[in-house]
Design a protein around this nucleic acid. Structure first.
Length: 477
RNA sequence: GGCGACGUGGCCGAGUGGCUAGGCAGAGGUCUGCAAAACCUCGUACAGCGGUUCGAUUCCGCUCGUCGCCUCCA
């Protein structure tokens, strides 16, 4: 597989450190509020990447942290008049709930910063021993000038950086570029004991501590939003490599921002759309298709029309499955294909789609291209089911093969179509009576009556579709 | 000021030195009492200006425009 590495700014062949195994660390949220749609992009993308790698036979470990101690949380707690611990607990639960509804499962490990204070302190100590950090006033700062590689990830040069900001109150940094790895406690803040007195971790250090702990001193992929490259990831590199002396991460992957009216979705801009709000209005799979339609590194405009397109794609998929299901149920399934439409084009489409889908995914996880391959298969399946429906016969083996491939593609992309999507179960007798009434009216050419019945079925949440085998009901979206 | 990304047909959005992306919307058609769904047909687009080349949307340069990072941010 080829991956675009932010560090080298090139596409590179993915060569895992350990054969057949891939370790991925993703920067998860700082839990000081409900997550928004933008926050969901890395969660979704890296789950999808992991699915693809697993499909390719890799043993993948995804570690996605929850940062549950931070300035923002403390600010938020003050605003809400609650204890910071309560705030972080509340929003981390909300995060797990919201992302859980996406149906992508969980990362393998979801470590929390507050559960790794020991590791964090040990890291700080080590940095001090190496003279890469210094203690002052109960805080510990990283000595940026001492790390020669500083800026290699973000392409920033320390002498070019704007650091106009005057040092904040109580800060006694040697150099404005230095950043806190440990912060001396202030009143009302969560505290832990440390060799430098009571305090709490700085931002950045928790990710270094947890990634090193769960994935080792040098691991394969580190991901997150583009906006984390500087300073967050740059500082992670500085911390980790100072301590280990080796290469921290081999491949850095950064997803583009979600925008609204072409502007980044972020809390400071005030244009966020909460994930839980989104899920009130849309099927979670709409979000997944919406994300997949654009390459992960590109910005993605969160707009109604884009979402409607994703919705339309989901509907197209549902219809495709529905049609396959109907054919399997209602036409004569011929095991050896005897007498059924031969579907040469479907055989071709299966081969082509299989090739193209993987070629696209292999190329820096190009889900947009992969979707195109997938829809090529959908089209061929639709053509075949149409033909089979008319002929009343279908080649079971062929159709099964097509369905399995489509299902496999969708599972990689992060979508599962369940029976509930296209099968009518437990229909009320009343509804079936309406269908019969409509049929009777149609026989009698009383179309006004027939249409009235259809309207009532529609109101009940079902759509009627006449097929060569008679009327069928489909759940409305 | 520094670093970086992007500009594709009505819209969204891949991609490529010469060969059909795909989806949505639209037009016409097939099927249907009408629908719905599906299928078929239809659009020759790559910001502008130069350059390299037999040939550039694709490579190089410049211009214009949009965006991101350099401060919290997925």
């Amino acid at each position: 597989m080829i991956i675009f590495n932010s560090l080298t700014r090139q596409k590179e062949e993915l060569v895992p450190g350990e054969d057949g195994k891939v370790g991925i660390y993703v920067c998860g949220p700082t839990v000081y509020g409900y997550i928004h749609v933008g926050n969901a992009r890395p969660f979704v993308f890296f789950q999808v990447l992991a699915r693809y790698l697993r499909d390719q036979g890799y043993d993948v470990t995804v570690v996605e942290n929850i940062t549950d101690v931070d300035d923002k949380i403390i600010d938020r707690a003050r605003e809400e008049g609650r204890a910071p611990e309560k705030v972080s607990r509340f929003y981390s639960e909300a995060y797990i709930q919201d992302t859980g509804r996406l149906g992508l499962g969980r990362p393998d490990i979801e470590p929390r910063a507050t559960e790794h204070i020991g590791e964090i302190i040990a890291l700080c100590q080590k940095l001090i021993e190496l003279d890469m950090a210094y203690e002052t006033g109960g805080s510990v700062y990283y000595r940026v000038q001492r790390f020669p590689g500083y800026g290699k990830l973000s392409g920033q040069k320390t002498d070019q950086m704007k650091h106009l900001e005057p040092p904040r109150e109580g800060e006694a940094k040697e150099n404005p570029l230095d950043f806190a790895v440990w912060k001396a406690a202030k009143r009302g803040e969560p505290v832990w004991d440390s060799p430098w007195g009571p305090g709490r971790p700085g931002w950045h250090i928790e990710c270094t501590a947890m990634s090193l702990k769960y994935l080792g001193e040098s691991f394969d992929i580190h991901g997150g939003g583009r906006d984390l490259i500087f300073p967050h990831h740059e500082n992670e590199v500085a911390q980790a490599e100072a301590v280990t002396g080796g290469e921290f991460v081999r491949y850095w992957m950064h997803n583009g921002m979600i925008t609204r009216k072409e502007e980044k979705m972020s809390k400071s801009v005030g244009n966020i759309f909460l994930l839980r709000e989104f899920l009130k209005h849309y099927d979670p799979r709409v979000l997944i298709l919406f994300f997949a339609a654009t390459h992960y590194r590109n910005p993605l405009e969160f707009s109604t029309t884009n979402l409607e397109e994703a919705q339309a794609q989901l509907d197209r998929l549902r219809n495709c499955y529905w049609k396959m299901h109907s054919v399997i149920e209602e036409t004569e399934i011929v095991p050896d294909g005897e007498g059924a439409p031969s579907g040469e084009y479907l055989k071709d489409a299966i081969v082509r789609a299989d090739k193209e889908f993987h070629a696209e995914m292999q190329d820096d996880a190009n889900t947009a291209g992969a979707l195109a391959a997938l829809f090529g298969l959908v089209k061929a399946i639709n053509e075949y089911t149409e033909e089979a429906s008319v002929a009343g016969k279908a080649d079971a083996e062929l159709l099964g093969e097509a369905r399995d491939l489509l299902t496999r593609f969708l599972r990689i992309i992060g979508i599962e179509l369940t029976m509930a999507d296209f099968v009518e179960t437990g229909l009320e007798a009343e509804l079936l009576e309406l269908v019969e009434a409509r049929e009777k009216a149609r026989d009698e050419r009383d179309y006004a009556e027939a249409d009235a019945a259809r309207d009532r079925i529609r109101e009940a949440g079902y759509e009627i579709r006449d097929t060569p085998q008679g009327p069928r009901l489909v759940k409305r979206k």
